[in-house]
Amino acid sequence: MKILAISGSLRARSTNNAVLRSALDLADVPSSIADIAGLPHFNPDLDCEDATAPAPVAALRRAVTDADAVLIVSPEYAHGVPGVLKNALDWLVSSGELVGKPTAVITASPFPTGGDHANAQLRETLRMLMADLVPDAHRELPAIGPKTDPALGVVTDPVTLDDLRTAVTALLTTARTTASEPTAT
């Protein structure tokens, strides 16, 4: 099993990145984190039938293809999905790498809502991309700031860690089931 993690935050000391790292540590399987900072703005002219996808786009698509599961962790900006993350997902619309891929969405926020607007928007976008959304793996983590150690960049709150462990276990269980299913020929 291999998880590809995608963060909706570019901040080095982001609490969402702490959540992402902690979730990957709890998963205890090979993982990688997609670099979406260098993706060009989505432009269908760069992705048409006769075009070669820009190198960062091709790298993202390969990473999604090579993963058994995708974990998206994101903050909420102005009640929505951060532009950098939406841009990354837009590059996956026409290529199909997320079709049937077990996927989880975790949003974390300093507010009591836990990023519920961004979480719902991400799940809707991923449904359109035909990702295999794993309901038991989605989370909205409220008041995340005091639950992390900024110096270490990890979650320290035991209740939140247990919740992340449950979410990641659900994602991996679905990925293992999907991997063991025979493919249609």
Rank of each mutant, 00 (worst) to 15 (best):
D90F: 01
V81N: 05
A104N: 01
A104Q: 02
A63E: 15
L98Y: 07
A58R: 13
T15D: 05
T107G: 10
L85I: 03
V57E: 02
D45S: 10
C48G: 14
A69E: 08
T15V: 13
D35A: 14
R11T: 11
L26D: 00
L122K: 08
A108D: 12
G100C: 11
A34E: 12
D68P: 05
F111E: 15
S32T: 14
A23R: 03
S95E: 01
L98F: 03
N119F: 02
V81F: 09
A37C: 06
Q121H: 09
P110W: 01
V81K: 06
S94I: 04
A58G: 04
K101S: 06
N87Y: 06
Y77Q: 14
L89W: 08
G38F: 05
S95G: 03
D116S: 13
V84D: 09
R61W: 13
I72E: 06
L10N: 00
A12L: 12
A63V: 09
S14E: 11
L24Q: 01
P102G: 13
K86Y: 06
S74M: 12
E76G: 00
P54N: 04
V105R: 00
A37M: 09
K101G: 10
T113A: 13
L122T: 05
N16M: 09
L89C: 07
A23D: 07
G38W: 02
A23F: 00
G8K: 06
L122S: 10
P110H: 05
A120Q: 14
L46M: 15
A78R: 03
R13V: 02
R13D: 14
S94E: 13
W91Y: 12
F111W: 06
A37L: 11
P110I: 14
D50G: 12
P56N: 12
D35C: 06
I36Y: 00
V64R: 00
S109K: 00
A104L: 05
P112H: 06
F42A: 03
S14K: 01
V84M: 10
D66I: 12
N16R: 08
E97C: 06
S95R: 14
T107C: 15
L92P: 02
D35I: 07
A120L: 12
T103K: 02
C48S: 10
I36W: 01
R13F: 07
H79P: 00
D45P: 07
Y77A: 13
